[in-house]
């Protein structure tokens, strides 16, 4: 009697075990397609939206070209600055354990979390005449307000976490024993860094720089507080939108989307893992 009761129950159980598998696969597939569409749909729409004449006109527009040039120059400079000053921090975080490490890591991540205008306000605060640091900058004839230097400062600020986190993860993947062996063979810290760590981590440094540059290229909220002029591409786009409407801001957007796409393609290609830590 009992046996006949158990069998259907088991069948239901087996059925249930199969059902979530099917559900799981559907969830995987459907959401992957949805996410791709969500990113690609609006962007593709924008790319194909501009009328040909207006687009060609925009390509000849000196203001547009200058702003895109400035965007590329400033973000590239920011990436180089983060490379020079961010690499040591990434190395220290990857290799050392110390009290307050979590705090340091949180501080590095702050620029990702805080609203962008706050970044601009914070930078303006310490560079004003009333602040000792601002006074120091003024004595060097450096001003952040309304200058390319200000724009670069903002870009470094928002791009640093992306660089440091990428490079840190990369260095963590390189066995520390390689450095220890190098030291035991007579190479000092510096020689070990340049002869062992750098050749094994340049890929991560490059990826970190591109991440930083891409992030800097897209910054708007903080830049508009520090420098409306000289105009970077996102600010120009915003200006065209408020002054002339959607039709005239679209071509600038298309150019920026194309530039970003190129960068990320480049990023994907060079970061192809060639199993360098083997």
């Amino acid at each position: 009697m009992e046996e006949t009761d158990i069998t259907p129950f088991r069948k239901t159980l087996t059925g249930l075990q199969r059902f979530p598998g099917f559900l799981f696969n559907s969830w995987m597939l459907v959401s992957a397609v949805l996410v791709l569409l969500f990113i690609f749909g609006p962007l593709a729409q924008t790319v194909f939206a501009p009328e040909k004449e207006i687009f060609l006109e925009t390509l000849k527009d000196k203001d547009v070209l200058r702003s895109i040039g400035l965007s590329l120059f400033a973000s590239g400079t920011a990436a180089i600055i983060t490379l020079i000053f961010g690499t040591p921090l990434a190395y220290i975080l990857a290799r050392h354990r110390f009290h307050g490490k979590k705090l340091v890591e949180s501080i590095i991540d702050l620029p990702i979390m805080i609203p962008h205008p706050v970044v601009g306000i914070a930078l303006l605060t310490i560079s004003g005449h009333n602040h000792p640091f601002g006074k120091f900058l003024l004595s060097l004839n450096i001003s952040l307000m309304g200058t390319s230097i200000g724009i670069i400062a903002v870009m470094v600020f928002v791009g640093l976490p992306f660089f440091v986190n990428t490079v840190k993860a990369g260095i963590e993947g390189i066995p520390e024993r390689l450095e220890k062996v190098s030291r035991s063979l007579g190479a000092g810290r510096g020689a070990t860094f340049f002869r062992v760590l750098l050749p094994l981590s340049w890929r991560y440094l490059l990826v970190g720089m591109i991440m930083c540059m891409a992030r800097a290229l897209s910054e708007f909220g903080a830049i508009i507080i520090i420098a409306y002029h000289p105009m970077v591409a996102p600010v120009l786009m915003y200006e065209r939108f408020t002054a002339y409407g959607l039709k005239y801001s679209q071509p600038v957007a298309v150019l920026l989307i194309l530039v970003s796409l190129l960068f990320f393609l480049f990023l994907r290609i060079i970061s192809q893992p060639k199993r360098i830590s083997e």
């Binding site: 024993r177 190098s182 063979l185 007579g186 190479a187 020689a191 083997e278």
Partner: peptide, 30 residues
Amino acid sequence: EQRNVGLVYQDNSLFPHLTCYENIIYGQRY
């Protein structure tokens, strides 16, 4: 680097980006 003490690990820790010969002469200059 100032001890003149060599070290060979169990996992041998060879420098993956250098050839065997380059690995072997790595420390001689120091």
